[in-house]
Design a protein around this nucleic acid. Structure first.
Lengths: 123, 123
DNA sequence: TGGATACCTGAGCAGATGCTCATGTATTGA
DNA sequence: TCAATACATGAGCATCTGCTCAGGTATCCA
């Protein structure tokens, strides 16, 4: 019963309240969108600006088909939006939180590795 | 070739550089740790303070075994740490980035739903 | 109109995931 | 020492994921 008092104060509005199942599902879904190396790379590339499907595919060394599938998922999860320009489909990040999430995870990984639990030569 | 110039400037240190495969894998792994409703709830509960396995299990309405399995994963991924106190294993978040990540995802979901693309009665 | 380019999408498959069940280990108190 | 409590963990299974492959749609240009 260690954190019981904190957990039990189901406060009003923002703050220390336990959320609904639906909220946790939506939050987990957001993380799931970024929980794959290919999608993480897509999001990172898009943080530099909008990009076409083939351009992403070339940079990621994966087939345009695979990228298209992943972009569809990212679209459905509300992380990216796209517009057409001629034959091109130009994708971009949908809101600032997405880039912040990526940056925050990157810093967590950096801190984690700095504690000497793993090698760090890739940073 | 829309975002090509931005992508190509493989800047020094922090900034607009493309990361290594290992970096993207580690970042994706961090998101994967939070990409399940049960684990998202565990992390949210732990953001209020440390907690025992059984206490988490009761609050999440899942078996202690399932919680223990998930905690093991969160431990291996560096999101939580634990200490023993008698028979209890008390778990806590390992670094501030974890709580920030959760909060940022929560805000993303909130913004996303505010745009009227889905219902919002759970917030 | 017809071909080329750019992208989308359904089917299917190998591998990963999250749970339950059964069992093992560590700490406490009688 | 022995039972009880609190966790940990391996095995097994239903389900999900991410990819490839094959085909489909939309736009441009000759």
């Amino acid at each position: 019963m260690v954190a019981a008092t904190a957990v039990r104060r189901v406060a009003g509005k923002e703050g220390g309240a336990v959320l609904s199942d639906r909220a946790y599902n939506a939050i987990a879904e957001t993380f799931r969108a970024l929980a794959d190396p290919t999608r993480a790379r897509i999001v990172h590339l898009l943080s530099f600006g909008e990009s076409s499907v083939n351009h992403l595919a070339e940079n990621l060394t994966v087939t345009p088909s695979a990228v298209s599938h992943q972009l569809r998922m990212l679209r459905q999860m509300g992380l990216v939006r796209f517009r057409r320009e001629g034959q091109l489909a130009l994708y971009a990040l949908d809101d600032p939180h997405v880039a912040i999430l990526f940056q925050e995870a990157r810093e967590h990984v950096s801190d984690y590795l700095q504690e000497g639990r793993k090698s760090r030569e890739w940073l």
